[in-house]
């Protein structure tokens, strides 16, 4: 069986065990997350960001800006979309989704990424990729400085899927010209709720 053959070959080839480096020196660097750093990174990666006192303010703004008749889905508790995600059995039916509004767990200042786990995606993992536009709602207090802090916070994964999402989808595959809106969302707006810690 190939499994045993490969493992045997690897066992024979690998050198004597070398130590695993300690991450503590990187994990304990004195870095404090700052909202200004996070928003500066969002600007840099082509994401939009806005501040709001509470969810009601976000809801009002979204309602005012949404094109007539556009289908939009929300997984943010207390903010209903026009599409009932639970009623959709096949994710292919989300092909015409205009926007998805999702709750981010926390943001990473150094790279503008927002962590979304499966509970934030609702019943369909494809939601943040298939929607034409993406709106992330995040507490302004929920920030970490870098990815070391991010993984320390995540600990062992507890859902089947999760992602760091940093801005709208993009490509530079044609002559290195940056084009926003490759296959995923054409825009990504991060709403920051409340006051930072």
């Amino acid at each position: 069986m190939s499994r045993d053959r490969i493992l045997q070959a690897v066992r024979a080839a690998q050198p004597e065990a070398l130590p695993l480096p300690d991450l503590a020196p990187l994990q304990t660097l004195p870095k404090t997350p700052a909202l200004a750093d996070f928003t500066a990174t969002l600007d840099f990666i082509g994401a939009r960001w806005r501040r709001a006192a509470d969810l009601a303010e976000v809801a009002a703004a979204l309602a005012a800006e949404r094109p007539d008749g556009a289908a939009w889905a929300s997984t943010v508790p207390g903010l209903a979309g026009s599409v009932d995600l639970a009623a959709i059995a096949d994710p292919h039916d989300l092909g015409d989704l205009h926007a998805a509004v999702l709750p981010g767990r926390f943001g990473v200042c150094e790279n503008g990424a927002v962590w979304l786990d499966e509970t934030a995606l609702g019943p369909h993992r494809v939601l943040p990729f298939i929607a034409q536009h993406l709106v992330l709602v995040l507490s302004a207090r929920e920030l970490v400085a870098d990815l070391h802090q991010a993984y320390a916070r995540l600990g062992a994964p507890d859902t089947g899927f999760g992602l760091f999402l940093a801005g709208p989808s993009k490509t530079a595959d044609i002559e290195q010209c940056l084009v926003v809106g490759a296959h995923g969302a054409r825009s990504c707006t991060v709403w920051l709720l409340g006051e930072p810690a």
Binding site: T41, F44, I45, V108, E110, N111, G112, A113, F129, P157, T159, G160, F161, G162, L163, F164, L165, A166, G167, P168, S169, K170, G184
Partner: peptide, 11 residues
Amino acid sequence: PSTVFSSHFLK
């Protein structure tokens, strides 16, 4: 600073 999508598949 990061790829846009860093997707963690578990199940």
